[in-house]
């Protein structure tokens, strides 16, 4: 067990590698109740979020649909990454637990005279069920109507079943759902899922799964000094509605126009060593042009060392790192290694 920002959480329930493989091949269940759930209600909720978030909640048409977004500061740096869901009235944001206090005080400071109520849903647990068999498991845990609906849902959609929000989101690159549910019901769901064959997954495998899937982790791929352009999140910044003014918009556009920024790429190493976060990356043999590893791990699916790295844009296929006095070479590709159990990483230039 470790203290994870005030939450006692297991790194693993036995073996991190076995848990990782189980999610890729079967179905894992994660207690992610440490995530902060904030409900935003009131007449001005939509207007408030259109100003607060880099993605545009106006695109959420159906109730319980969600979108990934960055919460930017004025200089276009990322205060947090989150998912915003449309509720029947108002919206729900799921933000990181490490940034909980800063997020809430930032949001409160942006309220102005708007008619908004912001409430933290400490009455809800959050459980993720992920893997190729996740929907089978769910069909045994939820009503037939709800499970039939869920099967039809594409990613980032959801439904409400007796006060429980079930959404087709996750942090693993597999099919599955995240469930925001009353604490007592959460215990029942957890036990039911285990009976149906799901296995509990700890923080360790959660990290290797998200890294293989090329998903960012706040504090590693992004922080308040990093722009969405530098962490493969530009696609979440909506500039569609030219009239919409959101916090960080001008800085984002300016940086985009200058084109002077590093980009997030995936690295695959053949050498037997993990190149971990903060490690320097070199684009040239002289080791003058540098980048940095944001997260590095052993990929249980590729059985090789992989990393996400922020590097200068180039058409190079390889880069270098120095590990324990030895120079090692990495293939560069898009920052995505595995999707739904299959290896998708390609060594290519952009």
């Amino acid at each position: 067990m470790v203290d994870f920002h005030g939450w006692d959480m297991p790194i693993h329930y036995g073996s991190q590698l076995k848990e990782h493989e189980f999610v890729r091949n079967s179905c894992g269940i994660f207690d992610v109740s440490h995530m902060t759930i904030l409900d935003i209600k009131g007449k001005d909720a939509k207007e408030f979020l259109r100003k607060l978030l880099a993605n545009d909640v106006n695109a959420l048409e159906r109730d319980f649909d969600g979108m990934y977004s960055a919460l930017l500061n004025e200089t276009g740096g990322i205060l947090d990454d989150l998912i915003a869901y449309k509720l029947e009235s108002g919206y729900r944001l799921v933000v990181n637990c490490a940034t909980r206090e800063l997020d809430i005080s930032w949001m409160e400071s942006q309220l102005g005279n708007m008619d908004i109520s912001l409430s933290e849903r400490t009455d809800l647990s959050m459980i993720a069920i992920q893997g190729p068999l996740a929907l089978d498991t769910l069909s045994k845990c939820f009503s037939p109507d709800a499970s039939n609906e869920l099967i039809k849902r594409t990613p980032f959609q959801g439904l409400m079943e007796e006060g429980t929000l079930v959404t087709t989101t996750g942090y693993t690159g597999e099919k599955g759902v995240e469930v925001m549910i009353d604490h007592e019901k959460a215990k029942t769901l957890w036990e039911k899922a285990l009976v149906c064959g799901a296995k509990p997954i700890g923080l360790g495998a959660r990290d290797t799964l998200r890294l293989e899937a090329g998903m960012n982790l706040y504090g590693f791929e992004m922080d308040e000094k990093i722009s969405p352009l530098e962490c493969n999140m530009a696609w979440t910044v909506s500039l569609k509605d030219k009239e919409r003014d959101f916090i960080g918009k001008d800085s984002f556009k300016l940086k985009k126009e200058t084109g002077e920024y590093h980009v997030l790429k995936g690295l695959l190493f053949e050498d037997r060593c993990i190149v971990r976060s903060d490690h320097e990356i070199f684009m040239d043999e002289q080791k003058m042009i540098k980048g940095v590893v944001t997260s590095g791990t052993y990929s249980p699916t590729l059985k090789k060392s992989i990393a996400l790295a922020r590097i200068p844009p180039s058409n190079l296929k390889n880069c270098l790192a120095e590990v324990r006095g030895k120079t090692v070479r990495a293939s560069i590709g898009e920052p995505k290694f595995v999707k739904e159990g299959k290896i998708v990483f390609k060594n290519k230039t952009s």
């Binding site: 790194i11 693993h12 073996s15 991190q16 590698l17 360790g204 290797t208 037997r272 060593c273 993990i274 791990t297 052993y298 060392s305 324990r324």
Partner: peptide, 30 residues
Amino acid sequence: GDIVFVELPEIDSEVNQGDEAAVVESVKAA
């Protein structure tokens, strides 16, 4: 925790007591 890489010394190499001779790397640390 789960060990993922082991780096072994070369055969015929000489080591002194207390010298670094191999590396073991787990998901957590090297």
